[in-house]
Amino acid sequence: MNPFGTFIQLLVDGLAQGSIYGALALAIVLVNQATGLVNFAQGGMAVLGSYIGLTIGNLLIPGVGSTLGVVLGIVAAVIASLALGGVVERFVMRRFERAEEDTKVVATIGLLTLITGLVGLIWGFNPTPYPFFFGGSESLRIGDVSISVWSIVTFTTIVALMVVLQILFRGTKFGLGMRAVADNAPSAALAGIRVGGLRMAGWGLAAALGTVAAILLASKSQLTPNNFDGILVYALAAVVIGGLDSPIGAVVAALGITILESLAAAYIPWIGHDLKVVVPFVLVFVVLIIRPQGLFGRRAVVRV
C-alpha cells in the first residue's frame, strides 16, 4: 500500500474511534449543561445500556430474525437508557443538587461502582461477544485504500446523531428550554420552565447517546463491565481540551486527539503503539497551560 493510502486509512479509523470518544464527551457536556456536574458514571451507564441491548437482541433474534432482532435490541437499549438517565437524575443526583462539587463527583463515582457491580453480577465480569457485527472485519476498497465498514457505520451514525441533537437544541422549544436551564436555572424556573423535567431529559438524552456509542464499540470488540473506563478517560480529556461548555469543542477535540494519537503511533517510531496513549494527555497539559478554559470554552467569570 502506498504511504498516502495508509494515511487515509489512519485518518478514517481515527475518525471512527474518535467519534465514539466524541459521543461520550458530548454526553458529558450535555449532562454538565443540564445539571452542572461532570458525570464520571457516563461510561458505566453506556455499558449498562449496551448490555441491555445485547440481552434483548439475543432474546428476539430466534423469533424475528437477526436483522430485526438487532435493530429492536438497539431501540430497546436506547429507550431503556433514556429512562435510566432520567431515573438516576431524579432519584440519585437530585439529592446532591446543592452539595459541593466534590461531593457530586464522588456521587457519580459511587454510581459508576454501583453500575459496574450490577453489570458484573448480571452478565459476569468476563468478556461477552456481541452477537452482531456491522462488518467488523469487512472493508471497502477504494483504489489503494481499504476502509472498514465498521468505521464508516460508526462515524456516520454518530455524526447523524449529533446533527439531530443540534436541531433539537437549536430548533425546538424543548431545546430552548434546555438552554435556558443550562444558562440560569432559577430564572428559567421563574419563567415557568419545568427545570426538574428538563434535567431528567438531559440525563436521559446523554445516557442514550452514550449507549449508542457503546453498542457501536461493542460491535467491534467484546463487551466487559469496565469496557468504557478507558473511553471515559479519553472523553474527559476531550472535554478538558474542548471546554466543558462547548458541545462542538468537545467533539472536535475528541476527533483531533484520536487522529493525532494514531498518526503519532504510526509515524513517530519512538512513540509507537505502546506509548500512543500518552499523546492525548500531553495535549491536555499543553492546553491547560495555555488556555485553561479549553480551546472552545468561555472563561468563567465569578462574581463575589
Binding site: 456536574l37 461532570v38 464520571f40 462539587e101 466534590d102 463527583v105 478507558g230 471515559l232 478517560v233 474527559l236 480529556a237 472535554v239 478538558v240 466543558l244 505502546d274 506509548l275 496513549v277 500518552v278 494527555f281 491536555v284 497539559f285 491547560l288 497551560i289 485553561p292 478554559q293 468563567a300 465569578v302
Partner: peptide
Amino acid sequence: LVTVRLRGLALAMVTIALPTIGLPLAQK
C-alpha cells in the same frame, strides 16, 4: 501546578488519566 489552574473539576478530570498513562508506561 498545571491542573489546579482550572477551577473546580479539572483535577478530577485530569487525575483520572494518570493510571491510564502509568500502566502502559510501566509495561513499556
